[in-house]
Design a protein around this nucleic acid. Structure first.
Length: 419
RNA sequence: GUGGGCGUAGCUCAGCUGGUAGAGCUCCUGGUUGUGGUCCAGGCGGUCGUGGGUUCGAGUCCCAUCGCUCACCCCA
């Protein structure tokens, strides 16, 4: 059996690669406009980074990590999410001594051992941004606006924003008891996995699609109605800022992000084009994360958005675009050899050039040139070569002119507008 | 981990109640001693996912297994 790409992974071929390049370019542009510097963290980290950063109650840590012992017996894990490693780098490099907030972004692959399906992979790429060192609610709103701007610039269709607040850790404990009190009478009617979640994180029952769960949650007390004063004010400021910036949103009290570190603001962008995985990007505030990784008490806010989900939402990858401007068709192998310097000079001048392989007939080369979408073909046969000349053919009009070999570059640029 | 669907040429697929494999596209060659995209002719290309069973005979039926895919859970 020939090897295949591992389950849940995929090859990105050139047509889709162009779409991804655009996503990256737009992200880089918008990030720069918002004062974010790019950071690259290792593809794998000490397992501890994710256990402490993401939290042991999460699915990611409990069953989705690619963890292995290296040859020195240290436990390592392929990065399953982007925020904890960036927070680790923030602490490691003492960035709390820089002017705050420190704003960092990345585009990097993430690895999670899950059952793949449409829009869900074991390796996927995320564009993410993190801002440390400020608890200003307006920063939350700026982060949301930044992500919305990326979607807008890419023209991702049917994007909607849902937002809520997780409150502060102290207030959440009290709320948790209220929620459990509401749920206990319904416990017998709930499926097993729902009852298990009651113990770990009852908030997550809000997100389950099971009908019995939905019924039980119907009259449940809402976290947003039980916020402390500080969290309440924070949330109101975020929403007000969004309104002032003209960013539409829906308040959704059932929005619960699956990572333990979130505090206060949580948000998620969805796209109806995506099928079951409607989430295209999301994030929130994580005021305790840096401290949990051994750093100072520094607040933070960030988001991640899935590159594959963006390209999925954008629809089919763009049709094949021409990959060359000029095609050099030289059937005779010795003449082809003699023209190697010409080929080099053309490429140096910035023209995209493909040269037909030695040993092919002119007809095959013309077909090749046409298939590649070349606008200009330069033909040098025995007669032209003897005279130090070349035939230049415009593939759209079929017009041909003969010029001295030294003038090829000048002519293809001028005639084809190719450079 | 649990359930549904599907596995025939590089791609998209056909193959009826079992009789020993086909089309379109792509690619290559020729029609045009050195000129493409159209047209015409020809060609390359398949252990029918794999293993076993039933049968004179299995791509078609049965069992197992692997893979892909969609969905649940959860997430990007």
């Amino acid at each position: 059996m020939a090897p295949r790409a591992p389950k849940g992974t995929r090859d990105v071929l050139p047509a889709e690669g162009r779409v991804r390049a655009r996503v990256e370019a737009v992200a880089a542009d918008v990030m720069a406009a918002n004062g974010f510097g790019r950071i690259v963290t290792p593809t794998f980290e000490e397992t501890e980074v994710f256990v402490r950063g993401v939290g042991t109650a999460t699915d990611i840590v409990r069953k989705e990590m690619y963890t292995f012992d290296d040859r020195g017996g240290r436990s390592m894990t392929l990065r399953p999410e982007g925020t904890a490693p960036v927070a680790r780098a923030y602490v490691e490099h003492g960035m709390h001594k820089l002017p705050q907030p420190v704003k960092l972004w990345y585009m990097a692959p993430m690895f999670r051992y899950e059952a793949p399906q449409s829009g869900r992979f074991r390796e996927h790429w995320q564009v993410g941004a993190e801002a440390f060192g400020s608890d200003d609610p307006l920063l939350d709103a700026e982060m949301i606006a930044l992500l919305a701007e990326i979607y807008a610039r890419l023209e991702v269709p049917e994007v909607r924003l849902r937002i809520s607040s997780m409150g502060d850790p102290d207030g959440r404990g009290a709320y948790r008891e209220k929620l459990l009190a509401h749920l206990r009478p319904h416990a017998d009617s709930l499926p097993r996995d729902a009852r298990e979640r009651m113990d770990e994180n009852p908030l997550r029952l809000f997100d389950m699609k099971d009908e019995a769960v939905q019924r039980a949650m119907a009259g449940a007390p809402l976290l947003v109605d039980n916020l402390g004063d500080a969290a309440r004010d924070h949330h109101d400021r975020v929403l007000e800022a969004l309104r002032l910036m003209g960013i539409p949103f829906e308040e959704d009290p059932s929005l619960v992000r699956g990572l333990d570190y979130y505090t206060r603001t949580v948000f998620e962008f969805t796209c109806d084009r995506l099928g079951a995985q409607s989430g295209i990007g999301g994030g929130g505030r994580y005021d305790g994360l840096v401290a949990s990784l051994g750093g100072p008490e520094v607040p933070g806010v960030g988001f991640g958005t899935g590159v594959e989900r963006i390209t999925l939402a954008l629809g089919e990858a763009a049709a094949d675009a021409p990959v060359v401007d000029v095609y050099l068709a030289v059937p005779d192998a010795d003449i082809r050899l003699a023209l190697m310097p010409v080929l080099r000079d053309l490429r140096r001048s910035g023209v995209r050039v493909e040269a037909g392989p030695s040993g092919k007939g002119l007809k095959a080369m013309m077909r090749h040139a046409s298939g590649l979408g070349a606008r200009t073909v330069v033909i040098v046969g025995p007669r032209e070569h003897a005279e130090g000349r070349a035939t230049i053919r415009d593939m759209q009009t079929g017009d041909q002119v003969e010029v001295p070999v030294e003038d090829i570059a000048r002519n293809v640029v001028a005639d084809g507008g190719a450079a």
